Amino acid sequence: MVEGDAAPCGRPVPAEAALNVCARHLVVIYDGVAGAVGETDLLPAPCAWCGCRIGVHYPSGWVCAECEWRFGDAPDDVQAPPRVEVVYYVRYADRIKIGTSAGPRARIAQLPHDEVLAFERGGRELEARRHSEFAAHRIPRTEWFEEHVALTHHIDALRDGVDDPWQLYRSWVARAAAKALL
């Protein structure tokens, strides 16, 4: 590598190097790129907004990779959490309930259930569409459905890539909170 108007540095370039750059100057280049675009790594502690453990480290500090909350900033206690409506799917024995709530933790705590299966962002209109979609297996006058292939496939699609539905919900709330601050 040439430094300014000077001659090449003269250090050996590793045979497997993708660029004709010595190891020392490769580190200088990497540090420059990492400073400009950030470096993804584990946060020193979970994000105060969404609980995510992954962050992007810039020279100016850490930012949560999920909700972009600046690490170290305390959430404003007087700010009300944003309203994020979800359609929830819970299992109890061999039945599945499709409901909606803007406070799913409190709502689901009131229900008999064995497992929270999935969340889908949306409110009453989406819930009504899902009730219609799976109406053939609905238990009359309830929001409970018999387990069946179409419903199972729908829930599996919602769960694809989601290890914890509560983490997904927290990320939606965090994003809504971050958006409200703009």
Rank of each mutant, 00 (worst) to 15 (best):
V2M: 09
V2Y: 10
E3A: 07
A6S: 08
A7N: 03
P8Q: 06
G10L: 02
G10Y: 06
G10W: 06
R11E: 13
R11G: 04
R11L: 15
P12M: 09
P12I: 07
A15C: 02
A18Q: 10
A18F: 05
C22R: 06
C22P: 03
H25D: 15
V28G: 05
I29T: 05
I29Y: 05
D31N: 14
G32V: 04
G35E: 11
G35V: 15
E39N: 11
T40M: 11
D41F: 05
P44L: 07
P46G: 07
C50Q: 00
C50G: 01
G51K: 01
C52Y: 03
R53S: 10
I54A: 07
V56R: 12
H57T: 03
H57L: 14
S60A: 15
G61F: 14
A65S: 15
F71M: 04
D73A: 11
D76T: 15
Q79C: 07
A80T: 13
A80C: 03
P81M: 06
R83V: 15
R83D: 09
V86G: 00
V87F: 02
Y88A: 06
Y88K: 03
R91C: 08
R91H: 07
A93S: 12
R95Y: 09
I98V: 13
P104Y: 00
R105S: 08
A106E: 11
Q110W: 03
L111W: 13
H113N: 13
H113R: 11
D114R: 04
V116M: 09
A118G: 12
F119A: 01
G122R: 00
E127C: 10
A128D: 12
R130E: 12
R130W: 12
H131S: 12
E133D: 14
E133P: 03
F134L: 13
A135R: 14
A135T: 04
A135W: 12
A136V: 09
H137L: 05
H137D: 14
I139G: 08
E143F: 04
W144P: 01
V149E: 15
I155A: 02
D156Q: 12
D156W: 04
D156N: 12
A157L: 09
A157G: 11
A157Y: 03
A157K: 05
L158S: 06
L158V: 06
R159E: 13
R159S: 14
V162N: 08
D164A: 08
P165G: 03
W166S: 05
L168Q: 15
Y169H: 14
R170C: 11
R175E: 11
A176I: 05
K179H: 10
A180N: 06
